[in-house]
Amino acid sequence: MSTPAIRLSGLRKTFGPVEAVAGIDLEITDGEFFSMLGPSGSGKTTVLRMIAGFDRPTAGTVALGGRDVTRLPAYERDVNTVFQDYALFPHLSVIENVEYGLKVRKVPRRERRARAEQALEAVQLAGFGGRKPSAMSGGQRQRVALARALVNRPKVLLLDEPLGALDLKLREQMQVELKQIQRDVGITFVFVTHDQDEALTMSDRVAVFDAGRIAQVGTPEAVYEQPATPFVAGFVGTSNLLTGAAARSLTGRDGTFSVRPEKITIGAEGAPGTVSEVIYAGPVTRFVVDLDAGARMVVVEQNRRTGKAQRGERVQLTWQQEHVIEIGGNRAA
């Protein structure tokens, strides 16, 4: 097997009495687009900073390409980091921003200019080198920051919520572009985000963080369709959790079960209940249904028809048994 681009072993980080990272073991494959997903305070950014060398672990090791770099400073690690604020120099042109790191490393002027132009071409900004950052859009500035990181040809590129400052439409556009750039350059991307859609859209694999630990690692499909814990089921998308008497009534089994809203149909037969809320969201409508069995269920329907259920209306819900997932177990029988 090939050597992982990143290997974290027993990684811990404390800040006084606070344990920000509580013992993480993780391997990230060379050339992988890997996302660290979790809410604020879950430890994902602290892990990224330890990989980058900005923070030193309290315990454990960080290895890059098989080399233990735990005690090496950031400038001796073959990684680059793109931050949310981009940190471009406003007085320099775009191409001067991109080649700045090469200039610090005393790369000859002709070579650094050629490499900077190649980096701008890779992020679809060829011909923009003479502009100042202030004359560019938010998405373009984000790509300049990306080019500045790529020009150093790192083995690993770390991205700390780089799309967080963009508006929704531009963020969605940049998600597609960022994944395409990663495929083109072929290096390992480690992407930190609290946005589930970003992680699911771009990643080869996702690690879901919860209170300083990794709750689950897997492909986007596996994490979404087979959540390992109630936290993962609730954080990655929306999930209906069935427990206690409601679980026994609706599944015939004891345990904790998850059913995604888009898997449920409002029909003429099934589990009876009452619509308590109707939320129109453009392409879809969300229905909140209080079942007689004691569970509150969210149902999502595409807006393909008129005559939808109204608030206070009695309805019945159905779903396929294969879509009932036992948390920590398998699909319900």
Rank of each mutant, 00 (worst) to 15 (best):
S2D: 13
T3H: 09
P4L: 06
I6A: 02
I6P: 02
G10E: 13
V21P: 12
D25S: 08
M36V: 11
G38C: 11
S40F: 06
S42H: 05
V47T: 14
V47A: 11
G53R: 07
R56V: 09
V62C: 06
A63W: 01
G65A: 08
G65L: 09
G66D: 12
G66N: 14
R67Q: 08
R67T: 09
R67F: 04
D68W: 07
Y75R: 08
Y75S: 07
Y75A: 00
D78M: 08
V82Q: 06
A87C: 10
P90H: 01
S93M: 03
I95Y: 05
E96R: 07
E96K: 13
V107G: 06
V107C: 06
R112H: 15
Q118N: 09
A119I: 03
A122F: 09
A122V: 15
Q124C: 09
F128D: 12
G129C: 13
P133S: 09
S134E: 12
G138D: 00
Q140W: 10
Q142M: 02
R143Q: 01
V144N: 06
A145Q: 04
A145H: 08
A147W: 04
R153T: 11
R153K: 14
D160I: 04
P162L: 05
L166A: 04
D167L: 05
Q173E: 15
M174A: 03
Q180R: 15
R183V: 12
D184M: 12
F191S: 04
H194I: 09
A199Q: 11
A199T: 11
L200M: 15
V206H: 11
A211M: 03
A211R: 14
G212E: 05
T219Y: 06
P220E: 09
E221S: 09
V223P: 10
S239F: 10
G244F: 12
A245H: 00
R248W: 04
T251A: 08
T256S: 13
S258A: 15
P261H: 04
A271C: 14
V275G: 02
S276A: 08
S276I: 02
V278D: 02
V278K: 04
I279T: 06
Y280C: 01
Y280E: 03
V284R: 03
F287S: 02
V289L: 00
D290L: 05
L291D: 03
R296V: 12
R296F: 10
R296L: 05
M297I: 15
V300Q: 14
E301T: 03
E301F: 03
G307C: 00
A309L: 11
L317V: 02
T318R: 14
H323R: 06
E326H: 14
I327A: 01
G328L: 13
G329V: 10
R331G: 15
A332M: 14
